[in-house]
């Protein structure tokens, strides 16, 4: 799948407007799963962990959806 641009009623947007929500949703999902498994409290510096995970998810989304 390749996503070069997002076109909405004739307006062209950067695909990042899609990538960011996807990465955010993945981060939220991970956070939920970690809570359910009760691992969340065991992570050292949980804020760093979550922000880093979001960046990783974003890069992964860009890599997979841009056809590179």
């Amino acid at each position: 799948m390749m996503l070069q641009t997002v076109v909405f009623s004739g307006l062209e947007f950067s695909p990042l407007v899609v990538y960011f929500p996807i990465a955010f949703a993945l981060s939220a999902l991970t956070r939920y799963v970690l809570h359910r498994l009760d691992w969340h409290d065991r992570i050292w510096k949980v804020a760093w962990f979550e922000v880093s995970l979001f960046v990783c998810y974003l890069a992964l989304t860009v890599f997979l959806l841009s056809g590179r």
Partner: peptide
């Protein structure tokens, strides 16, 4: 270690993006 690895991965991934 887990957190540091994820942070390092994020730095690498962010640089790639």
């Amino acid at each position: 270690t887990v957190t540091v690895l994820v942070v390092l991965a994020a730095i690498w991934a962010g640089r790639w993006v």
